[in-house]
Simulated assay, not measured.
Amino acid sequence: MATRERRLAEFNGAGEPPPGMPVEVLCEDHSGTYQLPFACRYVGGRWQNDEAGIALEATVIGWRLPRVKQTA
């Protein structure tokens, strides 16, 4: 199981993401840390689901630019 520190190091976005840019986010709750399975945007000081436009209820602790998925 990945440690909180290792996961945070993978989500090394500093400050706010570029305006209008969908990003991957790392969230945290009482059970631990987890990556949301959908892209998010930071709009008007709040995180929201990129496709649905719905505000997140999760606590975002890190973000990163989307990773390019490699095929074998």
Results as ranks from 00 to 15, higher is better:
F38N: 07
A55M: 08
R64A: 04
A58S: 14
S31E: 14
R41Y: 02
R67F: 01
G20C: 09
E57I: 05
V23I: 14
A9K: 10
G53Q: 13
C40P: 04
W47A: 00
C40D: 04
G45Q: 01
P37K: 14
V60M: 09
G20F: 08
A58G: 02
E51W: 07
G32M: 08
G62V: 00
Q48R: 15
A14C: 03
M1R: 04
E51H: 09
D50E: 15
F11S: 03
P19N: 08
L36N: 05
V23Y: 13
P22A: 14
L36I: 08
E24W: 07
H30W: 08
Y34Q: 11
P66H: 13
G15V: 13
F11N: 02
C27E: 05
R46Q: 15
Y34F: 15
R6A: 10
G44M: 02
Y42E: 02
E28D: 04
C27P: 01
M21R: 15
V43G: 00
V60I: 13
T59A: 09
M21Y: 10
R46M: 08
L26G: 12
T33S: 11
P22Y: 13
D29N: 15
L8F: 01
P22L: 14
G13T: 05
M21S: 13
G62R: 00
T33N: 11
P37A: 14
E28I: 09
F11C: 03
L8A: 05
A2Q: 04
Y42S: 03
E24H: 11
R67C: 02
L36D: 05
R67K: 13
A52M: 15
I54T: 15
V25A: 10
G32I: 09
G45T: 01
G53P: 13
R4N: 03
A9I: 01
G62N: 00
F38K: 08
A55N: 10
R6Y: 04
E57L: 09
